[in-house]
Design a protein around this nucleic acid. Structure first.
Length: 275
DNA sequence: CTGTTCTCCTGTGGGC
DNA sequence: TGCCCACAGGAGAACA
């Protein structure tokens, strides 16, 4: 299930084939995703040319002359490309297909249906879901001062703060765990207590963790596959995620596992500064 | 505002 | 083999 590296991997695989391509038709098998797919979207998109495929946070933005199709993959969604002559029969959780005149088909599979396909006229950044999103880690000023100012008013655990998409976008549960390990910061440290040097290091670690995952084509646990059908490989490199009780790769102490905000949190007591 | 809990849904893996 | 429970990559909604 996609975090930012998986969504960006998806965008990069789709864009070269689909940008400037024209939709012949769209097929919706189930409308009841997280929100219903708007009635009439199929006819709105018919004969529309995809101008650009962009991404904002974990949202894919399919930009057309008539408006923008906003697509979120939820927890279990993936988008795959098929040549129309080699399109396998649709299975139970294949909810949407977009067929293009040049013979390619983009198919959406999402077993849990937490994903969303929406339509927005006008600049997508004005959409209610996108309007209040924070910056991506790469875009943060390197001096750490902006983030320090934001964290100063939060006493919640730092892991919860960096997973709040309205503060910073792109850190899901896997990469939040990994970035905090990499920065040597305890996930339960109150956000407002981080020193500036910790904040600067955390920013660097968030960026480098996402970069490394992106280079590996994202992570594949159960559902995520690239639009080509190939999995990502970053899960080979996890230091903490999914490794509770196993020895720390740096100090060999057993990793701790707790729950924070309902999400499994794994860290090393020795390598990640205690409260 | 900030912060917490609940919720949507299906599949899977562990324990018995 | 089957049954039951906990948990899974997200994040808005509702509430304190």
């Amino acid at each position: 299930m996609p975090e930012l590296p998986e969504v960006e991997t998806t965008r990069r695989m789709l864009a070269p084939t689909l940008e400037q391509a024209c939709i012949s038709h769209m097929l919706v098998r189930r409308r009841d995703l997280r929100w219903p797919i708007p009635e009439g979207l199929e006819s709105t998109l018919q004969n529309q040319t995809l101008r650009r495929l962009q991404r904002r946070a974990k949202y894919l933005l399919f930009e057309f002359e008539a408006g923008t199709m906003i697509w979120h993959l939820g927890m279990s969604g993936n988008l795959r490309l098929f040549a129309h002559t080699q399109l396998p029969p649709a299975q139970r959780h294949d909810h949407v297909e977009v067929h293009f005149t040049h013979g390619w088909v983009m198919r959406y599979r999402d077993p849990r249906r937490f994903g969303a396909v929406l339509w927005h006229q006008g600049p997508p950044e004005n959409h209610a879901l996108l309007r209040n999103l924070g910056p991506e880690p790469w875009a943060l000023p390197h001096d750490g001062l902006w983030l320090q100012q934001q964290l100063a008013r939060r006493q919640q655990a730092i892991k919860l703060a960096i997973m709040d998409q309205h503060l910073i976008t792109g850190m899901g549960n896997i990469y939040a765990n990994e970035a905090l390990f990499s920065a040597g910061i305890h996930p339960q440290q109150p956000a407002r207590d981080l020193r500036l040097d910790q904040i600067v290091r955390l920013q660097q670690c968030m960026s480098s963790t996402l970069d490394a995952a992106l280079k590996a084509g994202g992570s594949s646990l159960r559902d995520f596959i690239q639009p080509t059908g190939e999995p990502g490989y970053f899960q080979m490199n996890y230091h903490v995620y999914g490794r509770g009780g196993l020895p720390c790769r740096q100090c060999q102490q057993p990793l701790q596992e707790i729950r924070l905000g309902g999400r499994t949190t794994v860290f090393c007591l020795q390598c990640q500064q205690q409260l």
